[in-house]
């Protein structure tokens, strides 16, 4: 099976890559990809582009920070076996709630509402000290240890992220084939017909958003172990736009696009210093986004697929 082959290859990467490539490129791309997957999933199967995915990842991250070991003295410590499920439950519920708020909105309206929710959450974390420790946020967060090995260890975090990413892809594939997943796609294609058939559209929309909250939450947990801190800037417009850029670069037509986009984004982010002034990274990434939107609105994943398809076609034409 091809996916298993890829996975085995990726799982062996820690043997050949040094810590810089493994942690700063591969692990970072995987975590970013998981969070972007939550957006690509919504865009692909529900047809809604949500700007609240950084918020969902942030809810999980803040939960881990508040109920975990941190150095700012806010919150209290719970065992990881409690705080991890709690973080996932909270991000799932938040996802469902956002779906409930945005349920009657499609297209640009959904974008505006989710963006307003995301930015309102950013301002809220900045103002509130009791739960979010305001502007400064949480630092000194430690990942759990299993048998004396910290999950922050480069190889351990990489393998954990890889496993989570693979599991997330499997879950998405399973979800879209389930009866609920089919209803979600029906809402995307013909909400009016669904209502006429007597099938309520609210349940599929809320479920899809809740599932996307679960995906974003698992990425958010990995992200806080990777970063070892979280603050309002982790849920601000920067991360919101980064996630969107990753999804758009990869393409909003297939879940795997999220990881394609994440790899491209991380490589650009890491090596842009060599191309241009570090300070002007935003101009570069904005120009890349503009170029993708103008030239390849379906993203790199689709572009590559079309390219390969054409290549294959011309090959078979040649052999005929």
């Amino acid at each position: 099976m091809r996916p298993a082959g890829y996975l085995l290859f990726l799982a062996l990467l820690p043997l050949v890559l040094n810590d810089f490539w493994l942690t700063l490129v591969a692990t970072r791309a995987l975590i970013l990809g998981i969070i972007a997957l939550s957006l690509t999933f919504l865009a692909t199967y529900l047809g809604v582009v949500s700007f609240a995915q950084a918020t969902l990842a942030g809810v999980a991250g803040y939960t881990i920070a508040y109920f975990g070991p941190n150095t700012v003295g806010v919150g209290f410590e719970l065992p990881f076996l409690v705080s991890i499920p709690l973080a996932l439950i909270l991000s799932t519920i938040t996802g469902g709630a956002i779906g409930l708020i945005a349920r009657q909105s499609r297209g640009i309206y959904a974008i505006m509402i989710t963006l307003a929710i995301g930015v309102a959450f950013f301002y809220f974390t900045r103002q509130n000290y009791a739960l979010f420790n305001g502007w400064t946020g949480f630092s000194g967060i430690r990942a759990p240890e299993i048998a004396g090995v910290s999950l922050r260890d480069p190889a351990a975090l990489y393998l954990l992220s890889l496993g989570t990413a693979a599991l997330a892809m499997v879950l998405v594939a399973g979800f879209v084939r389930s009866p609920m997943g089919l209803s979600v796609q029906a809402v995307r294609d013909a909400p009016g017909r669904l209502l006429a058939l007597g099938i309520p559209v609210t349940t599929p929309i809320v479920t899809a958003f809740a599932f996307s909250g679960f995906l974003a939450g698992s990425g958010g947990i990995l992200n806080i172990w990777y970063q070892e801190r979280i603050s309002s800037f982790s849920v601000g417009l920067g991360p919101i736009i980064d996630i969107l850029i990753v999804s758009v670069i990869g393409g909003l037509r297939h879940p795997s696009g999220a990881f394609v986009g994440a790899v491209v984004f991380v490589l650009l982010d890491t090596f842009a210093v060599d191309l241009i002034d570090r300070e002007r990274f935003n101009t570069l990434i904005g120009a890349v986004l503009l170029l993708i939107v103008i030239v390849a609105p379906n993203g790199l994943q689709q572009l590559a697929k079309d390219g390969f398809g054409r290549l294959r076609q011309s090959n078979s034409n040649a052999t005929e």
Binding site: G107, L244, L289
Partner: peptide
């Protein structure tokens, strides 16, 4: 104007423009 009617694409393009503008103004 080149993407009139494709609202999502326009939204994304205007985000790209706002990122570039904000960065150049900061510069």
């Amino acid at each position: 104007g080149w993407m009139q009617g494709d609202e999502l694409r326009q939204t994304l393009a205007s985000i790209a423009i706002s990122i570039i503008m904000a960065d150049l103004m900061l510069w």
